[in-house]
Amino acid sequence: MLLAIVESIGRQVILWMENSGRIVILLGNTLFHLREKPRMKHVLHQMAHLGVDSLPIVLLTILFTGMVITLQTATEFIKYGAQSSVGGVVAIAMARELAPVLTGVVVAGRVGAAITAEIGSMKVTEQIDALRVMAINPIKYLVVPRLLACVIMVPILVIFADIIGTVGGYLVATLYADISSFTYIHSITLFTVVNDIIGGLVKAMFFGGIIAIIGCYKGLTTGEGAEGVGRATTASVVSSIILIFISNYFLSLVLYR
């Protein structure tokens, strides 16, 4: 009984390590192909696709997050007479953590899933094999443009998120919590420094990379049939989100000490 449990855990660990190894190899391969000039047409196409897919949800998610955070901070801070700090606290939380992580989660759900579904269905219908027979390297043709697009586009989405989140906070602070618009904005400029924003964008690049690589890996390793594509897509989203949360902690540790 105990042995069976240990055995099953062991198997899971081995499987997990095997997958991690393969993902690292895929990443290495992809970076290796970056030395050749990537096709900007494909990258731009992917970026447009990705931006259009995610921007509305990112904006909506972050707007309300900015609002609720302000609501909570304002009520607590006002109790202690610290209303002049609300804007700054919200802006820092937004720029450092909330905007990059939530954008990452939204993009993982939309774009990561779409990447896996697209590549996965190409895999099960032998289109990847057809590419290979036609002497096209699927990593160069499919993975590189998606990786570049995600690494460039997620930070751009985060810039939008920073702005909309702050706007959401401003609205709640001024209209609901009776903090003057001057106090709120002044507090933002007092507390936030450029590094807060840049740190968030660096995180966003990492998250973009995670989403693209996991998305492509799960697509390229999809099992048989439509069922396989469905399973790969779910796995892609779940793995990306978990990795985003874990790496976020360590990125914060390095970026904001």
């Binding site: 032998e126 289109q127 057809a130 027979v133």
Partner: peptide
């Protein structure tokens, strides 16, 4: 060149 059993066209 190869003609695949299930065509494998880029859809």
């Amino acid at each position: 060149g190869m003609v695949f059993q299930y065509s494998a066209l880029f859809d």
